[in-house]
Design a protein around this nucleic acid. Sequence first.
DNA 1: CTTCTAACA
DNA 2: TGTTAGTA
Length: 125
Amino acid sequence: MEKTDLHRSLSVLPMGTVMKLTDLSARQIRYYEQQQLIFPKRNKGNQRLFSLNDVDKIIEIKNFLSNGMNIADIKHVYKKYQLQKKEKQHRYSKRLTDNETRRLLIDDILTAGGFKSKNPKDQSF
DNA sequence: CTTCTAACA
DNA sequence: TGTTAGTA
């Protein structure tokens, strides 16, 4: 991971901020965590602390859901994403960026699942 | 005042 | 998912 990703990985955002940034209820955000889709840190008071990467992922999950996918489908997406990222790095000397890998995987999943929307506004990538 | 967990007229 | 109770 590079230095430009450091600030995006810092968990410093409280629930209230994430609610506004994602336009989701605390209930929904906690549900994503309960489903092991996101892993926010906790402060000494047991309160959740999110990073900007968490926020991006939450919005992505939100879009996946509105595009017809269920929790299981989304878990598969991230599972494959992890595997594919390793494969690519080992198979080629060229190192793909996270965004490039995500783009390929997500586009593949949506196309194969028939979830691809014709409306660009419905997609977060 | 904000957030957390657990539970459901 | 919403909402509410009782905490921290």
